[in-house]
Amino acid sequence: MNTFLSRLNTIFAFTLSVMAALTFGCFLSTAFKENKTAVDIGTTKAVVKNVPNFAASTRDRNDLGQIAFDLHTELSSLFNWNTKQLFLYLTAEYETKSNKLNQVVLWDKIIRRGETTKLDFKSMNTKYYFFDDGNGLKGNQNVTLTLSWNVIPNAGTLPRIQGEGSYIIQFPDEYKQ
């Protein structure tokens, strides 16, 4: 503390320590939030095609689901002073003969701080192909659509949360040509 530089060093180090403590306090103040909210999902179209899957190594014909979905939700309750952005993703979950659990992400969206948190989509197309790895989609009566999200914080953990509300797609028994 006797010279200019030693004082600068001490003040800077002390400020950094206090900054770390503040950040930890910010994390603690939001660590126990549930980050859950209700989501309304529906579909306006659900057809299944049998086409070659060019993404797979074999050129077999696999089931391709094509859906258009409605999504309605209000996510402002997920934003607080420790939220940088939200990553939303729409997942289809179903069971086939070959796999007990299949999960396919069909659509996603990033909501940054300050952007609109009220989502109201009608007949949205999916972003990603809904390919099954076999023929498990035709006539599948129990394909569950759910919206989940990651809350990306300023400091703390990266929780993965499933929205409250789901929709069950029933695919037709015939392939669409």
Partner: peptide
């Protein structure tokens, strides 16, 4: 700054207030 940032839901405000404290203490004690 912690209280202010919590009130206006902006953690960056907390950092700004802390930065102001840093500058002030530099002026007063360097």
């Amino acid at each position: 700054g912690f209280i202010w940032g919590y009130m206006c839901e902006q953690f960056v405000q907390t950092m700004y207030v802390l930065g102001a404290g840093f500058v002030l203490s530099c002026i007063l004690t360097l």
